[in-house]
């Protein structure tokens, strides 16, 4: 469909860069900074837009893997995790689930994992639960760092896999 989203974003970025930004009063520093961030944000959104569905599916896969490991290792985990885990597996297999639906299923699964941590915080299994969360947390922080790499905040970009490699 013309105009596609990519074309619309490209045109807006060009208009802001070529016409709007040069017309901003340089003494208005907040306007100058916000205009620069607006263009940077739109450029990043344009770059990431084609990957959004793959990101959602990958995020859900990671949550499922974490939940499966918790269920296998912690006797009390299945009670709260079984249902959202089943919903997660179903969402991955059903092509009719759009990105928002996949995100919602992942959110419910992560909520259940969070409840397991809270409910176990003074119990005998907390050390084992934390060990799993901390070890598997590396996958989540890698994904977040790779996704947000264009922000320029990453002090050591070479230590982070590319988003394309993580989502492939």
């Amino acid at each position: 469909m013309v105009p596609d989203i990519d074309l619309q974003l490209q045109a807006v970025i060009k208009a802001l860069t070529d016409t709007v930004m040069p017309a901003i009063d340089p003494a208005n520093k907040m306007a100058v900074e916000q205009a620069g961030l607006a263009v940077a944000t739109l450029s990043m959104a344009r770059n990431r837009l084609p990957l959004v569905r793959r990101l959602a599916r990958h995020g859900l896969q990671m949550a499922i893997a974490m939940a499966e490991e918790l269920v296998a290792a912690i006797p009390t985990a299945a009670a709260g995790l079984a249902a959202p885990l089943a919903a997660g597996r179903e969402a991955l297999q059903d092509p009719a689930h759009d990105t928002a639906a996949i995100d919602a299923v992942q959110r419910a699964l992560n909520d259940a994992i969070g409840a397991l941590i809270d409910d176990s915080s003074n119990g005998p299994h907390i050390a084992a639960i934390e060990a799993i969360i901390i070890r598997r947390g590396k996958l989540a922080t890698d994904l977040g760092r790779a996704w947000t790499m264009p922000s320029g905040f990453e002090p050591n970009p070479a230590s982070v896999p590319t988003i394309e490699s993580l989502l492939s």
Binding site: R107, N110, G114, I117, I133, I134, T141
Partner: peptide, 10 residues
């Protein structure tokens, strides 16, 4: 929810 944040908070 971010499980790592919940674990860290606890």
């Amino acid at each position: 929810e971010e499980p790592l944040m919940t674990a860290a908070g606890n």
